[in-house]
Nucleic acid binder design. Sequence first.
DNA 1: CGCTGTGATACCTTCAAGGCATCACAGATG
DNA 2: CATCTGTGATGCCTTGAAGGTATCACAGCG
Lengths: 292, 292
Amino acid sequence: MDLDLRKIRYFMAVADELNFGRAAQELHIAQPVLSRQIRALESELGVQLFVRDRRRTELTPAGEALYADAGPVLAGAEALRRRVGRASRGTDVFTVGFMPGLIVTGAVRALTAAHPRLRVEVLRTSWADQVEVLLDGRADVSFVRLPVDQRGLKVTTLFEEPRVVVLPSGHRLASKEEVHLSDLAGETLLQPHKAVPEWQALTGDTAPRDEGGPAPLAVEEKLEHVASGSGIVVLPASTAGFYQRPDVVAVSIADLGPTRVALAWDATRRSRLISEFAALAAVHLSSPRPAG
Amino acid sequence: MDLDLRKIRYFMAVADELNFGRAAQELHIAQPVLSRQIRALESELGVQLFVRDRRRTELTPAGEALYADAGPVLAGAEALRRRVGRASRGTDVFTVGFMPGLIVTGAVRALTAAHPRLRVEVLRTSWADQVEVLLDGRADVSFVRLPVDQRGLKVTTLFEEPRVVVLPSGHRLASKEEVHLSDLAGETLLQPHKAVPEWQALTGDTAPRDEGGPAPLAVEEKLEHVASGSGIVVLPASTAGFYQRPDVVAVSIADLGPTRVALAWDATRRSRLISEFAALAAVHLSSPRPAG
DNA sequence: CGCTGTGATACCTTCAAGGCATCACAGATG
DNA sequence: CATCTGTGATGCCTTGAAGGTATCACAGCG
């Protein structure tokens, strides 16, 4: 009757690996078990999900459909467990995700003031997991930098802010008032290229939608690398200002549009606290705050 | 490891009934089984979900949290099964939900023209299930009349259109060019009152958020009832025009704002076909079409 | 005091999920 | 050509979860 989440998880593992043996290893079960479970899932759905042709394993169209939609369901189940766990630990908890450089205390304090018995927590996120924390239930709302994959989310834009390039102090461009994107053509970008979509136009990357660049680092690490001369990073002005240090310099970029900061939450939820916090955030974060 | 959807479904039944025996009956299982399954779920989550105090059964805060968020997960699982089933039946199928009175053929034909091998189906919905068909996977996109519960959906407004009141031909107001809401104060509204939010202000209903009125009927039935003099209905102009018949008259309402028609789809999905159809719908349905 | 409604326990049966050993087969390798 | 290797499928066994029935324990009511 019910779809079995375990089998779905098994399916996802096989679909990722396209190999029963390796998938079984990853799942810490024996390979024959996996074979049988997938067959059971197929017969339960009345659909063949994989084409096994002795040498390679591939997804059928139905398998593709399942693969495309199963992720959110698994994440949703995990989120359920997390939210229940948090609801059980004593009083209500409301968790706000934020990225370094954003000053969110105004909105958080306002919410705390309005609900003295509510415990409001903050959770630091990175560019990579700013969306995941919402879908897996670690946070109730999260401040995100657009663009993000909006699947499953509600997103309301709060404000825009300019982006700057961070250079080592001795860099040839470090003393300029302002630079152009083209000035940076020869530089190494120390962050995922999708975080700066315009970079692709500059370097002529041909749609490297997966992993178009180095793995994500924390901002402090990025700045450390910049200081040591191994490359540059492009950051929102307030983030760059937040981490001021003598060995790097932030220079504004003339022909790069602003980033937008938004508040996001799980589209399937609608709690009074979330809408209340959204309203407070709109008031307290309608413009970038000067960095402290 | 995995959350068990069967147990969640059991939990929802108990939470709805607040009575183990009746919930068990509804689930077609024996009551002791249900007792044990709920206990198992509680120990799996490490949280008490119900307070059983011999005489009544109530939700704990953790139970409330689970109850609030579990629905979408169950619906999502059901949607998974449906979508896979549809993907399996031969070629790709794209299903468009619509409400009677909306002319959607333009957008549908455009999509078919762009994808000759795609089978585009239409699914007639009612006000009550216009959202459900999306969340449970019966349709890929659906035309909806706002306002709707937007949880879990992406919604883009297409156009606005005025609303009219449909009266029996012999009605005292039937010959007027235009009526005011207050003129209708004594009438019986033959549709869920939430479908006409302004009605509540008129009659002074005190927040009847559940079932504020009669059960939903198909438009033809409503008109039949109007013709027989048992009440009136308020409809979008194009819907009223679609079902023209001699024994009822549509009169516009001066002080009632327009309804908005929007295209909606599951927020967790993002398929090329959906965005393509959204674009086509914006072109082909940017204004109300005259009824045929 | 006994009747009723309600959830929990005890005990049994069935079946799904796990493990291990082994098979069947395609392709590479000597 | 014979053999080895990688890969998924089968057969058989064990365990545990989920189902059922019978029954208990207890609160409230007449």
